[in-house]
């Protein structure tokens, strides 16, 4: 564990807490893509199956349980409790366009052709693109609530910090995992446009509105 990874994990944790607080406090999931949230729930459940087969540390297990349970809770809030506030007219990204290529890629390019390993690889690839329905929704409506933009910033920052963690591990442990690195870089690049808007607008106290 190095400082970049810890910061990345905390940023990830903060993103999810911000999202849940936004939904709970405003009693609304307006502006949040249910499709992205479904993809994230799929990411956590397929990646953390090793929770039952491989104990790494208490920290690791607690975080895994947190990510799986909060992603299920988010889906419950969006599709059951606050269903009336879910903005499904703007949440129209076809997730099959992501799921099919990611499944094929996971079956073809992996470290080991075993069920757990293929699922781990699938989750890494899926995570890299899972935010696309959300970014598509923001671009479609042309704006995002400030709290939603904080959520997106923390979620994007988490994988960017992981890239520094991988650079650190390469230099100091001689370890690298190309699948994680390539997917992590793709994931971070997808946020770049949003990062630019966040820094130039939200930090200066303006709402996140896309240029017309």
């Amino acid at each position: 564990m190095n400082v970049f990874r810890l910061a990345g994990d905390l940023s990830h944790l903060l993103a999810i807490i911000i999202l849940l607080l936004k939904i709970w406090k405003t009693r609304s999931c307006a502006g949040i893509s249910g499709r992205s949230q479904i993809l994230f729930a799929l990411v956590y459940t397929t990646r953390y199956l090793d929770l039952f087969t491989n104990f790494i540390s208490l920290y690791n297990s607690v975080m895994k349980v947190f990510f799986i349970s909060t992603s299920c809770a988010t889906i419950y809030l969006m599709y059951v409790k606050f269903k009336a506030t879910y903005d499904h007219n703007h949440d129209t990204f076809r997730i099959g366009f992501l799921l099919i290529p990611v499944t094929i890629l996971g079956l073809l390019i992996n470290h080991d052709f075993t069920p757990l390993e293929v699922l781990w690889t699938f989750s890494i690839y899926l995570e890299s693109v899972a935010i696309l329905p959300q970014l598509f929704m923001v671009s479609k409506t042309g704006d995002a609530e400030t709290i939603t933009s904080h959520y997106l910033f923390c979620l994007g920052l988490y994988r960017a910090l992981y890239i520094f963690n991988w650079i650190y591990r390469y230099y100091f442990e001689g370890f690298y995992d190309l699948i994680a690195i390539v997917a992590g870089v793709v994931q971070t690049v997808l946020y770049c446009d949003f990062f630019y808007l966040y820094v130039t607008r939200v930090i200066k106290g303006k709402a996140l509105k896309l240029p017309a």
């Binding site: 491989n54 790494i56 470290h111 080991d112 992981y162 995992d177």
Partner: peptide, 10 residues
Amino acid sequence: DEHLKSHDEL
């Protein structure tokens, strides 16, 4: 297995 080291990440 070397790649399993990455599985301790989240």
